[in-house]
């Protein structure tokens, strides 16, 4: 693993170049180009806003500008799910390269994480602009943005490395991931405030719900970007234990994912 890490650092420019490639290629030949990065979440926002804000009246729960609450969660969630979905198939889809050229294979899943991260940052900039325009009160904790980004990236990277390596041997992983992420989305407070869970589930079930590290990460995004304690107290929940648990789990997953990747990597070329 140490040797792999050294090689990886040697090839860091490849990660950069592959990321640039992904960014360039994603909206190449499309008329709107980069604007799609914005259009996509805005359309999602519209759908969820109409469904939950207007039809189910989640707004009535005392949340200022429910649409911004939605965006504060949807953007990082999309970043997470998109990078994982793309990363899972990354080794298999680049079979040509893996079979013909030697390079540290971990750059493949990680390049998708980075390119999705790039789009995420663009989207967050737009969200920030909206927050300022509509004079939503910002939280000073927004300065913790880079730290939270690193935390989520660690978690996503660990998961991506693990799944993309296993996917070479069991292609089912790819299909399973799609479905699982959909379920995971609804097991995470993005659309609804977390208070719904505490109110409607028995305490033991709520405790299980809080084992989901993405729930803690999303709650933090809503806290620092949307300023949930001020703008929507019902959506504000923070526990130091939950936070510590999430950080430790993310780091462990990253180590485990990388370890598994390094172990399996040697057999990629013949199996793919």
């Amino acid at each position: 693993m140490k040797k792999n890490l050294k090689k990886f650092i040697e090839y860091r420019e490849l990660l950069y170049n592959l990321t640039i490639k992904e960014v360039k290629v994603r909206y190449k030949n499309s008329f709107l180009g980069f604007l799609w990065s914005m259009v996509n979440p805005l359309m999602l926002l519209l759908v969820y806003y109409v469904a939950f804000g207007v039809i189910f009246r989640l707004r009535a729960e005392g949340m200022v500008r429910y649409e911004f609450y939605l965006l504060a969660g949807i953007l990082p969630w999309n970043f997470f799910s998109l990078s994982v979905i793309q990363a899972v198939g990354s080794v298999v889809n680049n079979a040509d390269l893996v079979k013909k050229v030697y390079f540290p294979r971990e750059v493949l899943p990680l390049s998708y994480l980075c390119s999705s991260g790039f789009h995420f940052l663009l989207q967050e900039l737009v969200l920030l602009a909206f927050l300022l325009i509509f004079r939503v009160r910002l939280s000073p904790w927004i300065l913790a943005f880079p730290l939270l980004l690193v935390l989520q990236a660690c978690f996503a990277a660990g998961l991506s490395l693990l799944l993309s390596a296993v996917n070479v041997f069991f292609r089912d992983v790819q299909h399973f991931t799609d479905i699982f992420l959909l379920a995971w989305f609804w097991m995470t407070p993005v659309v609804y405030p977390v208070s719904f869970i505490f109110e409607s589930l028995p305490p033991w079930a709520a405790r299980i719900y809080l084992l989901n590290p993405m729930a803690h990460i999303m709650l933090l995004w809503q806290r620092i970007v949307y300023n949930s304690p001020v703008n929507g107290p019902k959506a504000a929940y923070f526990s130091p234990v939950g936070f510590t648990y999430t950080v430790v789990l993310s780091l462990l997953l990253l180590i485990l994912g990388y370890w598994a990747f390094c172990r399996l990597e040697g057999r990629f070329a013949e199996f793919i």
């Binding site: 090839y11 950069y16 170049n17 592959l18 490639k21 360039k24 290629v25 390269l97 013909k100 050229v101």
Partner: peptide, 19 residues
């Protein structure tokens, strides 16, 4: 191996050389 059809030759040189 690893050329991307949507990139130009020049862009592919950078990508391929870094591979």
């Amino acid at each position: 191996a690893g050329f991307h059809p949507d990139l130009t030759g020049r862009e592919n040189i950078y990508l391929n050389a870094s591979i």
